[in-house]
Nucleic acid binder design. Structure first.
Lengths: 143, 143
DNA sequence: AAAATAAAAGAGAGATTTATCCTTTATTCA
DNA sequence: TGAATAAAGGATAAATCTCTCTTTTATTTT
């Protein structure tokens, strides 16, 4: 469904949200361990998200990644868009560039419903809302 | 959503279904043109689907690809499974291998609904049912 | 100011996906 | 039987995605 990059990105953002709510910044090594991802790879991904303003970072001792209130309230949809683009929300299920309402592929209308459901779900799911489930071990971010 | 390979596969299968219903076999070149795909690439894909029994083929003059009645009644879900596997129907949205009902990732339950919808849609959509829409130019398989 | 810390940035290796080319095999038709 | 046709198969190239390593820059602490 999503690229590996995007999967790591979502997991990392939720992980950082949790640490932010605990009142602290978190470094790359801890993030990589916490979400079971390659360290340098997730570093690159977060670099990019940071540049785009989806999360905050601070260099130097006591530095690390964290989320401000706006970022905590971001929907997962924003992360997906930032990493994978909106192909998954807009693109044709059969990969046809010209596919549209008036020039649809055979499964266009069926697909529209699926995509709409996916988008709504990801718009509702805010980065900062998973901390409770994680704290109570009702949800997990690693194997 | 699907791999490029899978998109081509679905388009090709629907195209072949149409030609089959017109009572003729269709060659690789015509398929490639008809669905706007690289010729040698779609050849490889159909080779594989043929080996797995999802479509029929005949060598030599007047040969080509076609679909028997069973194949015409196949759901698109079977093509997706044959090409992309069932990761899209089963796998975790965040790429976690251990994700399950009892050990879920944060978006496990929301994702389940989306996947269920997708699967149901693709199980209902039979390869042979798109010909009418294509004939009346209500649907299209190329740009 | 110097040392330590941690993200940012750049360069590239490895793996997978996508795409192409060439040869072989099977079938039909003359 | 020989020529033509069309899929099957094998090998490889190109592009993209995933991952790693090294250096640079910014910040804090002593």
């Amino acid at each position: 469904m999503f690229s590996k990059t995007c999967e790591y990105a979502i997991r990392a953002m939720i992980f950082i949200a949790q640490k932010t709510k605990e009142g602290r910044r978190v470094g790359i090594k801890e993030i990589a361990k916490g979400i079971d991802s390659p360290e340098h790879f997730i570093a690159k991904i977060l670099q990019e998200l940071s540049r785009k303003g989806l999360l905050q970072s601070a260099k130097g001792p006591n530095g690390g990644f964290y989320l401000d209130n706006d970022s905590l309230d971001q929907p997962l949809a924003d992360i997906v868009r930032a990493v994978d683009g909106d192909k998954i929300f807009q693109g044709c299920g059969l990969g046809l560039k010209q596919c549209s309402e008036t020039h649809p592929c055979p499964i266009h209308h069926d697909f529209k419903k699926i995509r709409k459901g996916l988008l709504e779900m990801l718009e509702k799911a805010k980065v900062g809302t998973f901390t409770v489930a994680l704290e109570n071990s009702i949800a997990f971010l690693k194997q």
